[in-house]
């Protein structure tokens, strides 16, 4: 098939179109409030870091540092819990072949069909009973019960050869040792992908903290950013600077794990 050189330029142009809003955000975050939304000038008249200063001061109005901390804690704790529970479960079902394991797996996969929104109201009622509303655990614990991780790791572990594990058992390795020293490293890339997916989903989750959190100091970044819009009047410069800060960790994680992410994203797509 012939390749057109001009197509290269078109695609680069499209790519740039997709990132143009990021460039706009970057410049806007260094503008003064009165200037931020003037469409006639993209570059700031005078570079001004007052939005970032405001963020570092951690104002009462918008405790962005605390939102950031909340986001980190919730996303990392969720990720840790999800990969721990999912890998143990997948290990028990596919490697230790517990009796009834496949029925359990079927049940877990079956519940994945239920839209997440169906859980919102009952979880609210349950978390209220457990006195977990307005705490980070209201977001962490329910996420750990999701079936996606178990499903993903089970299908991966099933494809692994059993020879190494059998040899290890003959060498007197215990089952927990086998899990920790052999199975886990073999699943490394797929656990890393699961970790990145879970982290991104938790970090960007909007409806759950909106529903389960009460105090402004327990907010995560997305609901915090939305708060700018709802409270009296939007301060666009601050909103945009905060959005950039909120996105930076994900972009970094994405660039580091790009290969794993794209591979497994397509793997899940192509299996159907």
């Amino acid at each position: 098939m012939r390749k057109y050189a001009s197509l290269n330029y078109v695609m680069v142009a499209i790519g740039l179109l997709f990132v143009a809003p990021f460039a706009f955000m970057f410049f806007a975050s260094f503008k003064r409030e009165a200037e931020v939304l003037r469409p006639e000038a993209i570059l700031p008249k005078a570079w001004d870091a007052s939005n970032y200063e405001a963020i570092s001061r951690n104002s009462v109005e918008a405790p962005i540092n605390i939102w950031f901390l909340n986001s980190v804690f919730i996303a990392t704790a969720t990720t840790l819990l999800v990969i721990t529970l999912a890998s143990l479960t997948a290990f028990a079902i596919t490697r230790l072949k517990v009796r009834g394991g496949n029925i359990i797996l079927g049940l877990i996969v079956g519940t994945m069909m239920i839209p997440a929104q169906l859980f919102l109201i009952p979880l609210y009622v349950i978390l209220r009973r457990l006195h977990l509303l307005d705490t980070p655990y209201a977001m962490i614990l329910p996420s750990a019960a999701g079936g996606f991780g178990v499903f993903m790791l089970s299908s991966f572990m099933r494809s692994l050869p059993t020879a190494i594990e059998e040899a290890a058992l003959l060498d007197g390795c215990t089952l927990p040792q086998m899990f920790w020293k052999i199975t886990l490293p073999l699943c490394g890339p797929s656990i890393a992908t699961l970790a990145v997916f879970t982290f991104i989903a938790s970090w960007n989750d909007y409806i759950t903290p909106l529903t389960f959190m009460e105090s402004v100091t327990n907010y995560t970044l997305p609901v915090g950013i939305a708060l700018f819009q709802s409270s009296y009047s939007t301060q666009y410069g601050l909103t945009i600077a905060t959005s950039l800060i909120a996105t930076a960790p994900l972009v970094i994680a994405f660039l580091v794990f790009q290969k794993q992410i794209i591979e497994s994203m397509t793997a899940s797509g192509l299996k159907e």
């Binding site: 605390i66 901390l69 804690f73 990392t76 704790a77 840790l80 886990l184 699943c187 490394g188 890393a192």
Partner: peptide
């Protein structure tokens, strides 16, 4: 050099640090 144990440890440390700071 990708190490799953290192990744787990890293996430755990971040969790503890951020939770502690909170």
């Amino acid at each position: 050099s990708f190490s799953i144990h290192g990744l787990l440890l890293g996430i755990a440390v971040l969790t503890l640090l951020s939770g502690g700071a909170r």
